[in-house]
Structures are given as structure tokens and as C-alpha cells.
């Protein structure tokens, strides 16, 4: 099964999750996802998802000057984003549990 198709539906959850404990700029978020073994996600999809979540009001952004080069725009979870993360986590857990059960039965 193509993992990238599976990922599309849960990319929001993944991006919210990697921003839960620490704010990050776009490339940061991408690297954390990759580090979390989500290697199949396209770069552009991550940036697009960030913009969509930001415009939906789940993220706030702020700019910080960087020593290495141009300024960097950080994203952080706001209250709404945390709520969404909690809801999505619950939905995902329930879904994964049901699917696990289903797969377990058919084995």
C-alpha cells in the first residue's frame, strides 16, 4: 500500500504533533517529521499544510532573526491548535484501534 496516500489524511495531525512541545520554522517542522520516520511526505506538502493550519487559526507565527542567514518565521500551537490536536489524537486512536481489531480478526 502506498504510504503517501495514507499520510495525506493524517498530515495535519502529524504537523500539529511535532509543534506540540516546541515551536519551529517550516524547515524545522519538515525535519522533525522526517526524523519521526515520515519520509514519504513531500516537502511542499508540509509547507502547504503549515499554511493551511495557520489560515485555519490553529497556529500562530512570529519572526525571529537568525544568526546564520535571513530571519526565520516560527510557528507555534495556539489554544485552538491544542484543542484540535487533542480531538484528532482521540479520533486517530479510536480509528487505529478499530482497524487493528479488524485486521487482527481477518488474520
Amino acid at each position: 500500500m502506498d504510504t503517501s496516500q495514507l499520510l495525506k489524511g493524517v498530515l495535519d495531525l502529524a504537523v500539529l504533533a511535532v509543534l506540540r512541545d516546541k515551536d519551529g520554522y517550516g524547515y524545522d517542522v519538515l525535519r522533525r517529521l522526517r526524523h519521526g520516520a515520515l519520509t514519504e511526505i513531500g516537502d511542499a506538502s508540509v509547507y502547504g499544510t503549515l499554511r493551511r493550519l495557520y489560515r485555519a487559526g490553529l497556529l500562530t507565527s512570529y519572526v525571529q532573526p537568525s544568526e546564520e542567514g535571513p530571519h526565520r518565521k516560527y510557528y507555534s500551537l495556539n489554544e485552538l491548535g491544542r484543542q484540535r490536536l487533542a480531538e484528532s489524537t482521540k479520533t486517530w486512536r479510536e480509528f487505529a484501534a478499530s482497524l487493528d481489531e479488524l485486521i487482527g480478526e481477518s488474520e
Binding site: 524547515y27 519538515l30 511542499a44 509547507y47
Partner: peptide
């Protein structure tokens, strides 16, 4: 501009 701010570091 916002998009490019995100993309440029990479």
C-alpha cells in the same frame, strides 16, 4: 511572501 519565508531556508 509567507510561503517563501517558510520554503527559503530549505
Amino acid at each position: 511572501e509567507e510561503i517563501l519565508d517558510d520554503v527559503r531556508p530549505q
